[in-house]
Amino acid sequence: MSDFSDSRAVSASGLRAQAARLRHVSENIANADTPGYRRKLMAFEAELGPNKPEGAVKTGPVRLDQTQLPKVYDPAHPMADATGHYDGSNVDLVIEIADAREAQRSYEANLKLFDQAREMSRGLFDLLRR
């Protein structure tokens, strides 16, 4: 029975990780026009421990994208310097939308795996009751 619970735990960890990824993508999209905003990046790490199943993942620390911020020319902007420029955001909406779709599909795949493991364990319990 531990194989069924391990598979559910692995898929649940994937669900949590992809949900966190989707939250960061949505924050990036919401702040795409915020001056000086740096895109948030995150990576997944193996979740290790004595009670953790093999294959479980967790989110790593959030990092800020260190690519150069674009200079935007708008002398009327309150953050503009003496030359009329201010730092824009390094968020690329095309990349964020692609990341959001990838996170959504990964979330759906983990959800399907979780549901299948639950159905298989339910079927096994039904067989054992007979």
Rank of each mutant, 00 (worst) to 15 (best):
D3M: 15
F4N: 09
F4G: 05
D6G: 03
S7Y: 08
A9L: 13
A12P: 02
A12Q: 14
G14Y: 09
G14K: 03
A19F: 13
L22K: 05
L22S: 12
L22G: 06
L22H: 14
R23N: 15
H24A: 14
H24R: 13
V25E: 08
S26K: 02
E27M: 05
E27D: 15
I29S: 04
A30F: 04
N31D: 13
N31M: 07
A32S: 14
A32L: 12
D33N: 10
T34A: 09
P35N: 04
P35W: 05
P35D: 10
G36L: 03
Y37K: 04
K40R: 14
A43V: 08
A43N: 11
F44L: 07
F44A: 01
F44E: 08
A46T: 10
A46E: 15
P50F: 10
K52V: 15
K52Y: 12
K52I: 14
K52C: 05
P53T: 09
A56I: 03
V57K: 01
K58H: 00
K58Q: 10
K58S: 01
T59N: 10
P61D: 12
V62H: 00
V62S: 00
R63Q: 11
L64W: 03
D65N: 07
D65F: 02
Q66M: 10
Q66G: 04
T67F: 03
T67D: 12
L69R: 06
P70N: 09
P70L: 08
P70K: 02
K71V: 05
D74T: 02
D74E: 11
A76P: 00
A76L: 10
P78Y: 09
M79C: 05
M79V: 03
M79H: 11
A80N: 06
A80E: 14
A80K: 08
A82I: 07
H85R: 09
Y86E: 13
Y86T: 08
D87F: 09
D87W: 06
D87I: 01
N90S: 10
V91T: 07
V91H: 06
D92I: 13
D92K: 12
L93E: 12
L93K: 06
V94D: 15
V94M: 11
I95H: 09
D99F: 01
A100R: 05
R101P: 00
E102L: 11
E102Q: 12
E102C: 00
A103S: 08
A103K: 04
A103E: 11
Q104G: 07
S106V: 04
Y107L: 11
A109K: 02
A109Y: 02
A109P: 01
K112W: 06
K112R: 15
Q116T: 15
Q116V: 11
A117M: 05
A117N: 02
E119K: 06
E119S: 09
M120D: 12
R122A: 14
G123P: 00
L124E: 13
L124C: 05
D126H: 09
L128Q: 08
L128P: 01
R129T: 12
R129Y: 10
R130P: 02
